[in-house]
Design a protein around this nucleic acid. Structure first.
Lengths: 190, 190
DNA sequence: GACGATGTTCTGTCTAACAGACGATCGTTG
DNA sequence: CAACGATCGTCTGTTAGACAGAACATCGTC
């Protein structure tokens, strides 16, 4: 009995409730952004240069490719992002922020900081930081497993420590535990 | 600059990604439950006796009343829950677990424990506990503000400490900070 | 140059959520 | 006690959103 009597440990309920609270909090802020919350996430990803192809962006955000098309249509017609042909692959489009998009993103981030803090209000200052970090670790660790990212990581690890040193333990767990869920079970009982 | 250079602090993205990861992880487990993940949450709430009326249950889970009707229809026809008339209010129905429902819930919770641990795999043991607790605190703090629950709480606090002792600080913040988001903004721009 | 694979877009279908109304019942007020 | 508004659960209809699949252009490879 090392664990204290759990008062309320339903992870799913807590996650869902916090998620809804978050969406409600940012609702007003992102109301003017074409794609809503996801529109902002596209801007944020583009601003960080994380937006490779549309497909990569879609997987990063957890949306369907076809949805990403419409999302970018709206953002582009609003003048916030640009679809520029990838010089290396003429099939793909690179998503980049316009000047307006950059300014908009900056304003959004400032406003969102406040909304996020309101969501995290029940926590103390340092606890908020801890929560952010733990969530980010899980998200990064269980992000859509990008094979080439993993490959890069392994390569980098090998290069930096060719003596057979194992890659950093805390990073995106390369050896998933036995009970790892299979991806996207198609057998959902509609 | 007391805050360290934030490497990846997009709370919304982290929340969404963890949420999707969680849903994927429990997908197989709750595949047989009528309402899917929310069907389980109904069972869990009923098992804890948290299920007052259908409306309270719906608000607790963040779903519409009409959706709750269908959800309970399915769960009831599967023999997992019972709709019994509330003796105190003949409009309302009390939701209770059947024997089958209790057994099912027990099995589900065991299986879900494993799936949840898989989601939290990137974290160390104590970090998982911390995350669960922080999320639960936020969820409890920003749950659909139930006026009568708040009233009860205040009453209980007064009864247990009539000397003017303030209620516990960590509990569902009765004095929301200035920037508290308004509940259920009806002005959502479709 | 032919082949399969991949990125993006388009089309159609279908589920799930929401707004609104209805009947039954409660609490309250005159 | 009768009438009124409010609330709970249900039902109906509409609509937005997601998904499956095909089509087109292009890449990598043999």
């Amino acid at each position: 009995m090392t664990t204290p009597p759990r008062l309320e440990s339903d992870l799913g309920w807590a996650l869902g409730t916090v998620m809804r609270s978050y969406l409600r909090a940012i609702d007003e802020v992102v109301a003017g952004v074409p794609g809503g919350p996801r529109g902002y996430q596209v801007l944020a990803a583009a601003g960080r240069g994380e937006a490779g192809s549309q497909l990569a962006l879609a997987q990063h955000l957890g949306v369907d490719r076809t949805v990403m098309t419409y999302l970018l249509d709206d953002l582009e017609s609003a003048g916030l992002v640009e679809r520029r042909p990838d010089p290396a692959d003429r099939r793909a489009r690179r998503i980049s922020l316009t000047t307006d998009g950059g300014a908009r993103l900056c304003a959004l981030e400032r406003a969102l900081r406040g909304a996020e803090e309101a969501v995290l209000a029940p926590l103390a200052e340092d606890e908020r930081t801890v929560l952010r970090e733990l969530l980010a670790r899980i998200a990064l660790g269980s992000a859509p497993v990008n094979p080439c990212q993993v490959a890069e990581e392994l390569q980098a690890a090998e290069l930096s420590a060719p003596r057979g040193r194992a890659p950093r333990r805390s990073a995106a767990a390369p050896t998933p535990p036995p009970g790892t869920p299979r991806a996207a079970t198609p057998a959902s009982p509609r």
